Each structure stands twice: as C-alpha cells, then as structure tokens.
Amino acid sequence: MTSKGTTWTVDTVRSADGTTIAYEAAGDGPPIILVGGAFNDRNTTRPLAAELAADFSVYGYDRRGRGGSGDTAPYAVRREIDDVAALIDRAGGTAYVYGLSSGAILAAYVAAEGLPVTGLALFEPPFQVGSHGGVEPGLAGRLTELVSAGRHGDAVALFLTGAVGVPAEAVAGMRGGPEWAWMEGLAHTLAYDITVTGEGLPADRLATIAVPTVVVDSTGSPDRLREAAAATAGAIPHATRRSLAGGFHEVPPEVLAPALRDALLG
C-alpha cells in the first residue's frame, strides 16, 4: 500500500501466546518500532512513521485488540511486552523503540526487561507523580463493565474524564463528533491502557534501563504530563529530556520526527 508517497509493507507476526499482531513497515535504515497509546493504532501513528521513514525502517503496529491484531484473554502487560519482542525479532533482532502515552510506559518496560533495544524515545508517559492524584480507583474494572454492557460511548467518556482529565462538559461536546465513533470502536482496549499505566512512578524499574533514552514532552501539555516526563527522565540513568512546541499531549510529526532523529541517531 502507499500513503503520501510512502510505500508500506503490511504483514503479521505471531506473539509468544500465539496472538497475531498486524503491522506495517516502510523506509530504509535502522529499525524503529512505534508503540501507540490509548485510541491509537497503526493508522494514527502513520504520519509520524512517514516522517521517520527517510532515516529508519519504521514499524507501526496494532496493539493487541486493535485493528488487524488479535487478542487473547486474560489481558496482561507481559503479553504486550511479548508483542513488541516479536516485532523486534521480525525487524532483525534489535530495534529502536518509540512510545506515546501509555505506549511510552509499555516501551519503557520493554527496555527494562532487557530486550534488544538500541535506543528508547518516550513521549509523555502518563505516570502518576507530584500533585496529580492519579486515575479513579477501580477504573479499569468499571471500563470493562461498561464495554461488556454494550455502553462503549459511556466507557469512552469515563476514560476521558477519569484518566485523561477532560472536563465533563467538553466530553459532552465531543459526543457525536467525527472522531467519537472511532473512539467507541477502541473502547474495549481502554482498560488495557489503564492497566499499563499502573499506579505511581516505578523508579526502581526504570532505573534498570541501560539504553540511551530521550523523554519528550509538549509545551502545550498540562503540568501533570510535563512533570511526569521530567520524573521519568530523572528515573532513567543518563536519560535526556526534550520539550517541543506542540499542543495538548501531541507534537506535530514534522516537529517531532527531526528531534527523534537527532536524539536517537545523533
């Protein structure tokens, strides 16, 4: 397939538990795997992948339960780590890893497990630090209950208010918008993102990461996300932090990609 001049190879890989993981690859250079966050799949990471494809062999994939990937119950973060391990193996046995939001936490855990990661880039991992009170207790279970009852829209609304911190009146205005149906389609995976995020900053786990790491945040993000980025960079030995011009929990791909090239490839 082609997209904006970039040719993508679409394929699947089998994870350790037998789950099929769908991915697309493009570019020429050292491999980098893009790990999306909530409401992300390989479609949403494709604009960044296209920007990186001039310098990397970029692998964008559907996290389990999303897009063309399968799923296997019960959910466990370990299974998602294994998914990335399968992609690293497919990419040639070693790779850079970039993660966004909850995907950044997952990427950090991949490196902390000692998998063959060349370098690590983390965009605003939403660890709970400082004055941020964290997500509502039992949120993952409540999300699962809503989805099981067929109330996908209510699950999306609960995630946005209880985890992201979007005001309820703003969420009400989003209902019926062009992206709402898309978010409802991923509602069944939101409990996974909450589980990945966990509670607090696992500084002892992050301290085991031994690969070059850059932690990125957006100047337009709220203090809690920027504080979490700073704390993450402080917990990972020799990590660097970059603040880039952007909006709420996002930096345009044309700004982010050059910064990642510089940080990872020097």
Rank of each mutant, 00 (worst) to 15 (best):
D11R: 04
E184L: 02
T19Y: 01
Y192R: 03
A73V: 10
D83F: 11
G220H: 10
I194D: 14
W180G: 02
D28F: 00
E145N: 00
D83W: 13
A259F: 03
A16C: 08
P222H: 13
G114D: 14
T240A: 11
D71Y: 14
G234D: 05
R226C: 08
S221M: 04
E250S: 14
S3K: 02
A235H: 06
T197N: 13
A172W: 02
D154R: 02
G246P: 13
T144P: 05
G133V: 03
Y96H: 15
V215K: 01
D62Y: 08
I88W: 13
G138Y: 07
Y59P: 15
P178Q: 12
I32G: 04
L186H: 10
G150Q: 07
L160I: 06
Y98D: 11
P125G: 03
A149S: 14
A191C: 07
T45N: 14
T197E: 15
D204A: 12
G130C: 08
A259K: 00
E250K: 12
H132A: 10
A53S: 15
V214G: 08
A26C: 01
T45W: 13
S221C: 08
L260R: 05
A230R: 14
T19I: 06
Y61R: 01
D223W: 06
M1C: 08
F127D: 14
S243C: 06
E179G: 00
G220P: 06
R78I: 13
E113M: 07
T72S: 15
